[in-house]
């Protein structure tokens, strides 16, 4: 079965990001396909490569990156929601004349059309808030 996930939860303020990660791992363990993980609302903060949780806490960015690298999962961050919250890739940093960027591959910035595409082309889109 083809699953996609919509992550709305703020990574360190809410549990939803951790739940989504565990759900994703279980999906893959069961042999399901993970078509896309879409980060929206406060969930876009997950994409920041600069997050530095304490050593005994889960680094959500790194965990998603590891999973995506292993299973080539699409990690898409809503560009409009990300930019206003200070999540930028190199190209956007240049465009907005900012000195720094914090979004790297495998995370990418794209529009809400990618969420629609995930909803249409997956059997199930599960929201984690």
């Amino acid at each position: 079965m083809k699953f996609s996930l919509l992550v709305l939860a703020s990574p360190y303020s809410q549990q939803g990001g951790l739940s989504a990660l565990q759900f994703a791992k279980t999906c893959l363990d069961q042999g399901h396909q993970l078509y896309r993980v879409f980060f929206y609302h406060e969930g876009v903060q997950t994409a920041s490569a600069l997050q530095c949780p304490q050593r005994d806490e889960v680094n959500l960015h790194d965990q998603w990156k590891e999973l995506a690298d292993q299973h080539s999962i699409d990690l898409v961050t809503c560009i409009a929601a990300a930019l206003k919250r200070g999540i930028l890739d190199e190209g956007e940093a240049k465009r907005y004349e900012k000195d720094h960027f914090n979004l790297n591959k495998p995370f990418e910035l794209s529009g809400l059309g990618q969420l629609l595409d995930a909803q249409i082309n997956s059997d199930q889109l599960i929201t984690f808030a």
Partner: peptide, 30 residues
């Protein structure tokens, strides 16, 4: 596609972000 809007506007951005998704979906002919 049915969008269930159950957030009040203004206090949180969720309602707004829901509308943004609706407008995107409409542009793709859904």
């Amino acid at each position: 596609i049915l969008i269930i809007a159950r957030s009040a506007p203004y206090g949180s951005s969720l309602a707004r972000e829901g509308i943004d998704y609706i407008l995107t979906s409409a542009a793709y002919d859904q």
